[in-house]
Simulated assay, not measured.
Amino acid sequence: MKKKQLGLSMPGVLALMVLAIMILRAAISLIPMYWDDVMVGSILDTIQETKAISSKTSTSDAKRLLEKRFQSNNLPISTDQLEIDRSERRLVLTFTYERRDDFLSNIDFVLTFTHRKDFTQ
């Protein structure tokens, strides 16, 4: 009586290794981008809690403050996409930005993050 073969063949093992390497490479690309986004959210929360930005803060001062905080935390994020809506007693920051990272040769990961903070007096 013949026994059935157990386990993977060599091509199966190689395919599994290639898949594992691709998943590891994706994690190496994506995890830092998500971690940077967590840091951006933390910075915006800290600014809101410490009241470093209020409804009377000018647009240029708000951008300058955010750029300074991003730079001190080594975040490669520009404040060019920062939108500020203001009224008499209200200032709303809407920050939408895009991050890109290489995956394999000409294949990129493109992630878009959005944060919105309301500074009401």
Rank of each mutant, 00 (worst) to 15 (best):
W35I: 12
K2Q: 03
V38T: 12
H115I: 02
L6T: 13
M33W: 05
K63A: 02
T79K: 01
D80R: 14
D36Q: 13
Q81S: 15
R90I: 02
K4A: 02
I28G: 07
E49F: 01
F109D: 12
L44D: 06
R100Q: 15
M22L: 12
N73M: 11
F103V: 15
T120Y: 14
M33G: 12
L66H: 04
K117A: 09
P76F: 08
L16D: 02
L44K: 07
T50I: 05
T50F: 07
V13G: 07
S42K: 15
E98T: 15
D102I: 01
A26M: 11
S105N: 14
Q71A: 08
T79E: 00
Q48H: 13
R100L: 11
G41N: 15
Q71V: 05
D80K: 14
S87H: 05
S42P: 04
R99M: 12
N106F: 02
V13L: 15
S72D: 03
F113V: 10
S105P: 00
M17I: 05
T112G: 07
V13K: 01
D101N: 13
D61R: 05
I31W: 12
Y97E: 12
K3L: 10
E83F: 00
P32Q: 09
Q71P: 00
R89P: 02
Q81T: 15
F113S: 10
V92E: 11
L6I: 14
T59H: 03
S54A: 12
I31H: 01
I107V: 14
I47K: 11
S58I: 08
S60M: 08
K68H: 07
L8Q: 10
A20N: 03
F95C: 14
T112Q: 15
V110A: 08
L16V: 09
L8A: 10
V110N: 09
G41M: 04
F119V: 01
T57A: 07
T59L: 01
Y97L: 08
Q81M: 03
Q48K: 13
A27K: 07
L44N: 04
W35Q: 11
A26D: 03
T57H: 06
N106V: 11
R116K: 14
D101S: 13
R69N: 08
I84S: 05
L93W: 06
I47L: 14
M39Q: 14
K3G: 05
L111Y: 07
